[in-house]
Nucleic acid binder design. Structure first.
Lengths: 192, 192, 192, 192
DNA sequence: AATGAATGAGCTTTCATTCAT
DNA sequence: GATGAATGAAAGCTCATTCAT
């Protein structure tokens, strides 16, 4: 990773953190720059505009998620085991790097997420689609559109993360229940 | 509904529509006022600040959802039937009033959704929690924390809506698959 | 003249003065506003953008010039007398209100003066064209395109003003020569 | 012309072109450098500051005009012939190198044209003054301050150029009228 | 209560200039 | 000499909020 990439990523990570804390509203370029220890104007050396920076951040986050999840997948295992790995790795990642999940949610439900944007190549989306397709083709998942399966699973995972984040400080009493969730999801999508 | 309430709601609906179209960024008070056919200053007759208006909008949307869903629930039916009614009514409502779902999503993942805010009374949250509690107590749902059940179901419903919105113009080929989703969700949460 | 018009004109006059002193470069909105005793943002109550303000200023200056010159024209006089009135009134006006002439020159040779802009209605241009047309039709001016006559005369008048401004503090020795200029110009354009 | 001079002139010509197209506003150093195929910082090897570059450009343009016009003057001819040569050469030059005329106009009516600047030696100004002085001394021009004669003639020439540029695409119908202009100007300044 | 002109802090962005390489 | 990334002051503009009418 050369010097240039380093600084670009410093800026992206700075924006990511600010967006997690304060939303898109709360990440003026001045703050992004300050937190990345560069001058405000320097952001424009790396990005054409703030909008372009946000889009780049979206690509960055998705590629980081893809890297992490695909690395830890073992295609030689049977699909049920791979599914529980996937689930655990994804929820762990979203907990460790809460800003990833927070940013993706905010981005998805924001006007940055235009139709044009959705036409961009999306390696993470393709990877998950391929993953669930393998589950179907091996006869272990219901024969549905893999996009739908993917979206259902991701929606549940995000709900779980949100729940954990939300009740973190409140109660541990429901902890054992949360372990059941991947099983519930599996029961919903498995071939039966 | 008196004159005052009328105007307040006109303003809220104007904000709702703008937020759906352009996100929080794209709803300056000046626009909200213009679309509601009032003067900018008048918004401050009804709301202390823009933030307060957004919070009020949040309460308004939730109460509208509660009204619609609870009205169409028939507690005398068996729970499985009630569940499918719930699912269908919710997804229909979110499709008819897309701004409701869009706003709730944006709100939830925004910094408006503070800890303090989450301590507010939340009739819609209480209603759904009670709904799933009845399902558990009647032995038809897994004996989990009803908050978790609720969140899982809502997450799936929202994923479905998003999917429909996203693929509206693209393909109808997956239409039959979508009918299976409530069944899948039910298979995930039912007592077994 | 109502209150609104007053403030709009205050802002225009403030911009006019700054442009005379410092050119387009030297009239940031902040300065324009300060000199007009309004807040920076208020400028945008009256003008959509800085560019629009400059274009409006152009219309304003031209209309002021037209008002002044046409008021003092006496169509019942013979054309030669009217010509010398025109010359004297124009050079007097440009000396009294040096910013008018300075602005018009800067505007004309600036990129504000686009092709599109030149399609706008231009009462001052039309008035001068009609003026010289009458001179031609009464047989007192060379039968040329009145636009050309107009442009030649204006060019000379502006050269004279520039000369006077430039040598104001330097020498009065050429004063008597300057009186001859309108005669020279007349000799150039009169029918002979 | 050595390598250094070459690069300096490349930069000046680049600035000249940008100013013609976009005015002083539209010639950031970054663009000037790019169009001259040098790095932004390199401009500062040749010029102390942007202002200094503009002033140098002014000197450059004037010296080019002087070179062109003085080369084509034939002092052995009688003055009337020399005048028409002068007129034709000047208007041709300004048409061929439109950026010269555009720059000089913008410069003259800009705040770069300070009093201090006007005290600089000005070979082109001196040449034209001397030229008209010869016309006076030979008894062929009105005995006026040659500075005035010069300014009148130049003002008319510029008006003509502007007229031609402006109506280039619009009509050729006035073409024959334009031939009469140098005659008109001559009639205005000749001894009578 | 209702208005909308006025405010000014704060935003994104540009650009002349510097300086380590 | 030449480079171009980095700087940061200053530009144009937006918008939540106020207040005289």
């Amino acid at each position: 990773m050369d010097q240039n990439t380093n600084k670009k990523i410093l800026i992206l990570e700075s924006a990511l953190e600010l967006i997690r804390e304060n939303g898109f509203h709360g990440c003026p370029i001045s703050q992004v720059a300050k937190q990345a220890s560069v001058a405000a104007g320097s952001v424009y050396t790396y990005f054409e505009s703030k909008d372009e920076m946000i889009l780049e951040l979206h690509r960055y986050v998705k590629s980081e998620v893809l890297k992490e999840i695909s690395e830890k997948d073992h295609p030689e295992k049977n699909f049920e085991a791979r599914f529980f790995d996937f689930w655990n790795n994804l929820t762990s990642l979203y907990q460790e790097r809460a800003a990833f999940q927070s940013f993706l949610e905010q981005f998805t439900s924001s006007p940055y997420n235009t139709e044009t944007m959705q036409l961009e190549s999306d390696p993470w989306g393709e990877w998950t689609e391929a993953f669930f397709k393998e589950g179907i083709e091996s006869g272990q998942l219901r024969p549905l559109n893999p996009k739908i399966l993917s979206m259902m699973v991701m929606g549940s995972a995000i709900s779980l993360i949100r729940f954990k984040t939300y009740f973190k400080t409140k109660t541990a009493s429901t902890a054992q229940d949360l372990h059941l969730i991947p099983k519930m999801v599996w029961d919903g999508i498995k071939f039966q």
